[in-house]
Design a protein around this nucleic acid. Sequence first.
DNA 1: AAATTTTTGACTAATACTGACTTTAATTAT
DNA 2: ATAATTAAAGTCAGTATTAGTCAAAAATTT
Lengths: 176, 176
Amino acid sequence: MVKVSNMYTIQPHCFSNKSHMNNQNMSDIIEAYLKKVLGTDEQVEIRRSEMADRFSCVPSQINYVINTRFTVQQGYLVESKRGGGGYIRIIKVKLLDEAEMLDMMIDVIGSEISQRNAYSIVETLYEDSMIVRREANLMLSAMEKSVLSLEDCKKENELRARMLTAFLTNLRYEQL
Amino acid sequence: MVKVSNMYTIQPHCFSNKSHMNNQNMSDIIEAYLKKVLGTDEQVEIRRSEMADRFSCVPSQINYVINTRFTVQQGYLVESKRGGGGYIRIIKVKLLDEAEMLDMMIDVIGSEISQRNAYSIVETLYEDSMIVRREANLMLSAMEKSVLSLEDCKKENELRARMLTAFLTNLRYEQL
DNA sequence: AAATTTTTGACTAATACTGACTTTAATTAT
DNA sequence: ATAATTAAAGTCAGTATTAGTCAAAAATTT
C-alpha cells in the first residue's frame, strides 16, 4: 500500500555528505547514477533491463529504486511504457514555494474527508490564489457526494481524501 | 517520519514533454510521420503496402498503428477501400462546437471508462483548447488508478466515468 | 531481537510485431 | 456478361519484448 521513505530518518552522528559514504548499497549507487544525469539534464530515459545489466541486479530493483527515491514528493515524475521500445523516464520537476503548505494540507486531510471539509480546503486554496475559480469548480464537481457515493459512506470519504490529495500533490510542482 | 506514497510513479498521469522522446519504436515513427502530414493537411491518403515498404514492416503493422493511434476518441476518422486502387485515408475531425462535443463525449463515456480512454478524452479536450494544460493535469491526477482503486476493478471504471462526466458537465455549464 | 530496508524472482500486464488467412474490388480472359 | 485472376486492405491470434507487482528472503539498522 504505502511505502515508507527514508529521506527524513535521522542520521546518527552528523550530516553525512553522500559523496563520502563508503557503505553504499546497490540502490544508493543506482540512485546516485540517475541523479548525476539529472544534475545535467532535466530528464533521463532508461531501459529497465539495460540498467539491471549495468548494475548487475534484477530488473525489479530498478523499480524499487524509483519507488523509494524518485517520488513526486521528492520532486520527480516518472513515466513508462512497456512492450517493444519500452522505457522508463524520470523527470525532475521544480517544486514551488507553496509545496510546504500543500504538504501540511495533505497531512491534515489524512485518509478521509467529508465533502464539507473538502470544500473548505478548496476555498482556502482559492483565497490564497493557489488556484483560480475555474479550477476550484472542477475540483469540487469531482468531489461531490453524488459522484463518489458508494454503498459505504466511509469509502466515500476515503476516496475523496485520495482525490483531494492527488489534486494538492499536483499543485506542488511547476507544470511542465 | 513521513509516509510517502509511491502512487504516482508508474502510470503516466500528466502530459509529457514529447520533444524529448528519443526511444521511438517503429509504430511511433509511423505515427509521427502520419501526424506530421496531418499537421499540414486535413487528411492523408496512403497505400498500405507502400507504407509497409517505406518503413520496412509488414502491412498489418500499418493497421496496428491506425487502430491504436488514430481512433475516433483521438479525433480521427479512417476510410479505406480494398482491391485494385485501394487506399487508407485518415481524416482529422473537428466539426462539433464545444457543447455538442462535450455531450458527445459524455455519451461515449457511458457508465464505465478505463484510465487509458479517459486520458484520450482529456487529451482531446486539451488539443481542442477547451481546457488548459494545468486543468488537464488536475483531471488526470484525480482519475489515476491509484486514486480510484477499490477492491473491485469494475467499480473503479464506474467511478472514473462518473468523475469525468462531472468534469465535462462542469465545463458545459460554465460556457453558458 | 525487532524493525526496517534492500534484494530477489516468479508471476502479471501492457505494448509491439508478425504472418497466415479472409474479404473486397478492379482488371483480364473467356 | 461472366468467370477467373490479380491487387489491394482487414482480421486475428500467436509471439516477442518490454515494464510492473508482490511477497518472501536476506541484509542492515535500531
